[in-house]
Design a protein around this nucleic acid. Structure first.
Lengths: 328, 328
DNA sequence: TTGTATGCGTTATCAC
DNA sequence: GTGATAACGCATACAA
């Protein structure tokens, strides 16, 4: 019922705990005879060292916190999954927390994780809790900002070129002769939302079009706000003929909204920042800025392992390049 | 840089570590004066107790392992997410591991988790590693099987009525006058796959139809095997006119497969065990057996908390009832 | 090559 | 009410 300790094993094998430890960790000298004998006892009783005790002694938790705004969003899940694999390989485990874009939950999460003494923190943040995050970094925990950055914070970041990609989205719509483009943004607290908005505006301005507030809807990156955006746009006297939606969930909402209003989904040209799982099956006028969550995850994973191994480098800011896949 | 310990706080406040501990945990007596004084020091230095040391001392890790076959599948993610919320509320954290349906990875995962001394294990297993799982349960770790069960293992389970639901799927297709139904199963090692297959067979037999091997395709619950299934069915001389797919990913594959073959997606009647995120936008002949991952997660969460609090009960076997939502 | 002893940061059991 | 102190399970410096 109750787990065996190193002492029990030592007694059973007639040696000291130090020897058991040496065998377990392949450290120091231990004669082949004794080693085999100890291994036999370990096998026989199925002894497993207590990772908690080991952590305490070594002052290494071998854990990494990962704080995400939405675990149900496939984009973030794919990032997390990739990192999880890399970590598990290295004997680390991930503590996931889903903040649901709630800054207060995020604050609690960060507190929780520092009590657990995570060695690193991967964060796609709400945009708040800036001081707390800086303090975590200052306290010696490796912080990697994923997908979303903070301006003026000297932290590792792995993000995407949101401005460029959004600009190209608008250009794509302009090429298709749309000039009345409804833009659905995310919350201004989030860097990706600000950047995507900015990119869109640049795209319009470079084409000589003045962005109007009327065609800007500030959503909150949820499905519901995509629906709301469509409701809003569709009660305008002059409706947009095309939509640029700043994330995948809102795009989903766009289609739900169109459906609710009885509007044929293919009748409106859409560009989505971020893929919808089913876009390949869709024959609607949907273009997608394909993000690459797996590559993001790998990049973060690599950087993470480097940091955990103490391979010191200056602050890293890696920027991945999403690309637009036009509608069929 | 380096974290403060309880000793540092004690010294700073001019009291003993015992008093600090009492203040932190609201345990035992401590005069209001001293309490305030200690709290002040704690606040000032932003002291956070080391959860690892506490775990060691209390012999409680306050962690729970959750082992899933596919973190990218929204079904499992929604289960996990719900459980995570409940756990976090209670001060527990989850260690997620994604086995990718690989029994060897699962074995390693279980080993890893027992070393971490998780207090409970939630498992949607590959069907292998039976003895190891039994041993974990015997060692006093609460085990809850989620979605997938083991026969003859006296463990808590929270599952769905796969047989009944699959039977109703077949009945639905029969009512629509389909008699040539292609059935795409999952791997026989997995209980849900066996049960869904069984339910389908019962449905056919009760209608006086003899199930044929020709119309049974054994996939592996992946998108790819849905594609393969369609390739297989479509090279038969007498193709099926309808498809029953035993999980959501394979259903996705079905549509990808149809698309690849240039077959209009709506030309074939499909029933999917498990929802596709976009089914509500789809105007194809797609009926869905709606599972309820959130309810599953809540049920598991409730049971988990009960177990962790030692509210002893006999083995629980909860069975949820999915329902069929017919195509539009 | 092996053993002894100390300490990691807590909590809890005793005294006082 | 408060303070010493032992103990949780392990790794490691130092002795032997």
């Amino acid at each position: 019922m109750v787990k065996m300790t190193i002492k029990d094993v030592a007694k059973e094998a007639g040696v000291s705990t130090a020897t058991i430890s040496r065998v377990m960790n392949n450290s120091g000298y231990v004669s082949e005879d004794i080693k085999q004998q100890v291994l036999e006892v370990i096998r026989k009783f199925n002894y497993q060292p207590n990772a908690i005790a080991r952590s305490l002694k070594q002052e290494k938790s071998r854990s990494v916190g990962i704080v995400l705004p939405d675990m149900a969003n496939p984009y973030f899940m794919k990032i997390a999954r990739t990192i999880q694999h890399r970590c598990f390989q290295q004997g680390y485990h991930l503590l996931f927390i889903d903040t649901e874009e709630n800054p207060e939950k995020e604050r609690e999460a960060l507190e929780f994780l520092t009590e657990k003494r995570v060695e690193a923190l991967i964060l796609a943040g709400t945009g708040e809790n800036r001081d707390q995050i800086q303090a975590i970094s200052d306290s010696g925990i490796h912080v990697i900002l994923a997908d979303r950055r903070f301006s003026n914070l000297k932290l590792d970041t792995v993000t995407e070129d949101n401005i460029y990609a959004s600009k190209s989205a608008i250009e794509h719509l302009l090429e298709k002769k749309h000039t009345r483009i409804g833009i659905i943004n995310g919350p201004k607290t989030i860097s990706t939302a600000r950047e995507r908005r900015q990119g869109a505006i640049i795209g319009l301005e470079e084409a000589g079009i003045t962005p109007t507030n009327e065609f800007m809807f500030e959503g909150d990156y949820t499905r519901e706000s995509g629906i709301e955006a469509i409701r809003y746009f569709w009660q305008l006297p002059d409706r947009p003929t095309a939509i640029f939606s700043a994330n995948n969930e809102m795009t989903f909402g766009v289609y739900l909204g169109l459906q609710q209003l009885g509007i044929p989904l293919e009748s409106i040209e859409v560009v989505s920042f971020g893929n919808l799982e089913f876009s390949s099956l869709f024959h609607h006028n949907l273009s997608v800025i394909m993000q690459n969550p797996q590559e993001l995850g790998e990049t973060i994973g690599d950087l993470l392992i480097k940091r955990l191994n103490g391979e010191a480098d200056s602050v890293q800011n890696r920027i991945l390049m999403p690309h637009l896949v036009p509608s069929k």
